[in-house]
């Protein structure tokens, strides 16, 4: 991790486009979720404005993944309200599909479709969900593949790519749907340090373009440089949130202090 951090510090971040607006992108009110009788998420309240870059961290099992998976309804919540881009998530499948096509998601294990080429991975959803003509979808896909710096792999299959390349394809695949919000669930934790850097670079580039991002990660270098807010979760609750500088230098809650000392300490 340290390697990735140092290399990130070399990079000059262009903050001209990173603007937090007043417009609300995601609003979560008193949201609760249970797995059977196990109370995973407790009274979550969170408002994300358009243009915000939020990093969520916390110990394993604290419910970070569950929280961001609730935002695009991969998990169902039992109480409270989640509103994404003005659409309130309910059991109505139409609403869910609408939210999902507006929100991009990147997984820890990439989850590319192994039976399709990289290009087909990227054009599938635009063609079938957005009804974009094939030619146009392919042009968009190539544009984003160039952006994540792997246009030459377009006709290979995911199994032929390295982990870092696969994760960048996964990001490009989400971007092809032109999402207004991107969710990342530990996008770099299945990768080797060298590959972490290429994926983080891609994410920084996205942030520089003003994308609204919610990112579960333990890359504290990324959090310091890119995030405008860091959220610390423990036992299914938001324990502390702050801007990165005060969050890292002056944590208030004891759990946060313990967590930070553990992950930054060594």
């Amino acid at each position: 991790m340290s390697e990735a951090q140092t290399s990130l510090q070399d990079r000059q971040i262009d903050r001209s486009q990173m603007k937090v607006t007043d417009e609300v992108a995601i609003e979560i009110n008193d949201m609760n979720k249970w797995y059977g009788t196990f109370h995973v998420l407790r009274d979550i309240n969170l408002t994300v404005n358009r243009g915000e870059r939020i990093v969520i961290c916390g110990p394993s099992g604290s419910g970070k993944s569950t929280l961001i998976r609730c935002i695009n309804a991969l998990e169902e919540h039992q109480k409270g309200q989640i509103t994404v881009d003005g659409t309130t998530l309910s059991t109505d499948l139409k609403n869910i599909d609408k939210v999902r096509s507006e929100v991009g998601m990147v997984f820890q294990h990439f989850n590319l479709f192994p039976h399709l080429t990289i290009l087909e991975n990227c054009t599938l959803a635009p063609i079938w969900v957005r009804k974009v003509p094939k030619r146009e979808a392919e042009e968009t896909a190539m544009y984003f593949l160039e952006k994540v710096k792997i246009p030459e792999q377009a006709h290979k299959y995911p199994g032929q790519l390295s982990g870092g390349q696969q994760q960048r394809v996964a990001i490009a695949r989400s971007l092809c749907m032109r999402p207004r919000i991107m969710l990342f669930d530990e996008p770099t934790s299945a990768l080797d340090p060298e590959m972490i850097k290429e994926v983080l670079d891609t994410m920084i580039q996205l942030a520089e373009e003003g994308m609204t991002m919610l990112c579960v990660t333990h890359e504290m270098g990324f959090a310091r440089q890119v995030a405008n807010r860091v959220i610390f979760m423990d036992a299914g609750q938001i324990v502390e949130q702050n801007e990165p500088e005060p969050f890292f230098t002056n944590p208030q809650n004891d759990r946060t202090k313990l967590f930070l000392s553990q992950i930054l300490g060594h």
């Binding site: 609408k98 294990h109 969900v129 749907m177």
Partner: peptide
């Protein structure tokens, strides 16, 4: 099939049949 495949398909907004 790994559940990740179902989740990736869902997260792209594909409906059940698609």
């Amino acid at each position: 099939l790994p559940t990740g495949q179902y989740e990736a398909a869902d997260s792209l907004g594909l409906d059940y049949w698609k």
